[in-house]
């Protein structure tokens, strides 16, 4: 039964991908991107990788769709006709694809217990992490503690994305005489529902943030969900009112605070006599120290992701609003 579901989902994935290549309407392509991410999330769930599925659903299907729609609002929704001949790219793609397929022949059989990946580090994590870290959700232990340095790198990448977007676009504060309200002005239903739901979404984000030690979730997902709440607010009530709630300058400070919080945990554990990001030294009991470390760095990740996603949306939104006015 699981195989059947996998096959159907993979077939739908392939159809979606092919459709994306042939469509010229970029708006539809963005929607298909969202569907694609959601289908891969379903495949991850079928593989019992709930954390990855959660990330894929919230980041891939949720926030990146919104951000790509924001980009479309700036650039226009039709694909330009390419004037180059397509023979050379086709050749390159075919050769690369053939090489990749040739490469898969050497891959170990899918899901076989003797595969290298099941013999090297995975058994150690599974056997030792309850003793060393003691969290029910092993994914969080691996992500935040064993591979804490990788996760720091990922957080810095997210931060760097913000710097790139701000360097290219920048958030424009509106002048007083601009058209004051965009958004859905007279949309009472949306106003009421949004007012009711935004606190609940933020509450759910906090739950995901702090429940990440025990179940699926963690900083990345929580940050994205919290950002989604504020994006909803911006869409419904307009950019100027959202700037009054969380200003862009404050968000930029928040984004760097998250990264700094993460890195300072690493330096603090060095100060305590351990290695960089060695949480065992944070408290007298190493397991308690691990718990402190994981909660704090997850908080750092969550703050950075939230601030970066919302800042990027602000950057797109303020540019789009400006071009609408002109």
């Amino acid at each position: 039964m699981g195989d059947l579901i996998d096959l159907v989902l993979l077939a739908m994935l392939a159809i979606t991908a092919l459709q994306m290549i042939f469509l010229k309407d970029l708006f539809a392509v963005v929607m298909l991107f969202g569907i694609y991410s959601f289908l891969s999330a379903l495949i991850f769930i079928n593989l019992d990788a709930v954390d990855v599925a959660f990330t894929e659903a919230s980041v891939g299907a949720g926030i990146s769709t919104v951000l790509m729609l924001g980009t479309l609002a700036l650039t226009g929704r039709k694909e330009k006709k390419s004037s180059h001949s397509s023979i050379l790219p086709l050749l390159v793609v075919c050769i690369t694809g053939a090489a990749l397929i040739y490469g898969t022949l050497d891959m170990p059989p899918f899901g076989h217990p003797n595969n290298p990946i099941h013999e090297h580090v995975a058994p150690r994590y599974i056997e030792e992490s309850p003793k060393e870290i003691g969290l029910p959700n092993m994914v969080t232990s691996v992500l935040a503690s064993y591979r804490g340095f990788d996760t720091l790198g990922e957080t810095v990448v997210v931060f760097a994305a913000l710097i790139g977007v701000l360097a290219l676009l920048g958030v424009r504060r509106q002048e007083e005489n601009d058209v004051p309200e965009s958004g859905f002005k007279a949309h009472h239903v949306l106003h009421v529902v949004a007012r009711f739901f935004i606190p609940l979404i933020i509450l759910f984000a906090l739950y995901v943030q702090f429940h990440g030690d025990f179940g699926p979730g963690g900083g990345f997902q929580a940050g994205v969900i919290a950002a989604a709440a504020f994006i909803l607010y911006t869409l419904v009530f307009g950019l100027s009112r959202a700037f009054a709630v969380v200003g862009p300058k404050f968000l930029q400070a928040l984004a760097s605070i998250g990264v700094l919080l993460y890195a300072s945990v690493g330096f603090f554990s060095m100060y305590k006599g351990g290695q960089f990001l060695d949480y065992s030294k944070l408290a007298t009991d190493p397991i308690v120290g691990q718990h402190y470390g994981i909660i704090i760095i997850e908080l750092g990740v969550g703050i950075t992701v939230f601030a970066v996603m919302l800042s990027i949306f602000y950057a797109f939104g303020s540019q789009a609003e400006r071009s609408n006015i002109q």
């Binding site: 859905f184 949309h187 239903v189 949306l190 529902v193 739901f197």
Partner: peptide
């Protein structure tokens, strides 16, 4: 039950 009718309503109104 709340979001899906709201989304349809917003879509139609837009």
């Amino acid at each position: 039950m709340i979001t899906s009718p709201t989304a349809s309503h917003a879509l139609a109104k837009s």
